[in-house]
Design a protein around this nucleic acid. Structure first.
Length: 305
DNA sequence: AATGTTACCAACCGCCCCCTA
DNA sequence: GTAGGGGGCGGTTGGTAACAT
């Protein structure tokens, strides 16, 4: 017995969303909140699959989304989280406020993956591609280490690594060249404590599965808040992230390490209006017509570009 | 200018998990 | 206990813009 399709395929439109459809969906969500997605298309007057509506909303229309490329710090955080969580994009996205799993997944596949490969890092295992010649520590987060060493990557790669090094202090790689097993990339955070104390399931456990490896990460500086968030399977809403917003617009780690997420684009100022209320709630009596119209106007602008 | 190639990303597909009756 | 619905998730595709030849 096959499953019922999520929607009636006949008469369901596919492909890119039009500004008109976006308006309808936004209007509906703002008016009614997020309810049963299957019912949304019908109620909103859209010839779309409910799933498609949900995706459009969560990946593009949600007012709390950031747009634009990931910053270096965000990128580094994604790498760190991926090393721990694997391709659990939604889990990773949950730790990056304003970013969606789809966005992170795309960014990983188009940017980070290539960067890591160029650096000699296997993007899947986060181990050096050539284990006999571990060299990534010469590029990543080893302060005062010359980047002119054996790695002959191009300048952009080196500058990328340096950039990551400079901007991200609390989340970084290190390679452990001396282990009896394999060279190892570890996250510069509370891994060692978590391994010994909590022992949560580790996606890429191959890199962290023996005593020698565990010993290698002893002494690495710890950011308990961040890693405890990562370990907890409980969903973490953006507000529960270990960031705080210094001066209202500069996210900081709870341990006062600035993450340097970029200031939001001025064009997204309307989003701030929307952040005064709970996105999850969208009971939306707190919306006023002006805010809704602002949203729709911005959408119009975007669609005309 | 025309054509080919690459990069990017929005959107879709289908599987899986969770909840509920 | 279990079947089915709903939503979430990760992988993949397809359109298109940018760049190269």
């Amino acid at each position: 017995m096959g499953r019922q399709p999520c929607c009636d395929k006949l008469g369901v439109k596919k492909g890119p969303w039009t500004a008109e459809e976006d308006k309808k969906l936004i209007n509906f969500i703002l008016t009614n909140g997020q309810c049963c997605w299957r019912a949304v298309p019908k109620l909103a007057g859209l010839r779309r699959c409910g799933k498609s509506c949900r995706l459009r909303w969560t990946n593009y229309l949600r007012p709390d989304l950031k747009r634009g490329l990931l910053s270096d710090s965000e990128e580094q955080l994604v790498i760190d989280l991926h090393a721990r969580l694997g391709n659990r994009w939604s889990k990773i996205a949950a730790r990056l406020p304003g970013r969606t799993d789809n966005e992170i997944k795309n960014h990983w596949n188009t940017h980070i993956k290539k960067k890591l490969i160029k650096m000699g890092i296997d993007p899947i295992t986060h181990e050096p591609l050539n284990k006999d010649q571990p060299k990534i520590n010469q590029n990543i987060n080893i302060p005062n280490q010359s980047s002119s060493s054996s790695n002959n990557n191009n300048n952009s790669d080196i500058s990328t690594a340096e950039s990551l090094n400079n901007q991200t202090q609390s989340s970084s790689f290190e390679t452990a060249n001396s282990g009896p097993t394999n060279s190892l990339i570890v996250i510069n955070s509370s891994i060692s404590e978590d391994i010994t104390n909590n022992s949560p399931p580790i996606e890429n456990s191959s890199s962290l599965n023996d005593q020698s490896n565990a010993s290698l990460i002893n002494g690495i500086s710890i950011d308990d808040t961040l890693m405890s968030c990562i370990w907890n399977d409980n969903d973490v809403t953006p507000l529960e992230l270990p960031y705080s917003y210094d001066n209202g617009d500069q996210p900081c780690l709870s341990n006062n390490n600035v993450v340097n997420l970029p200031a939001w684009d001025d064009n997204c100022s309307w989003l701030f209006d929307c952040q005064d209320f709970g996105i999850q709630d969208f009971g939306l009596d707190c919306f006023n017509d002006i805010e809704i119209m602002n949203t729709l106007e911005v959408l119009d602008m975007g669609s005309k570009q």
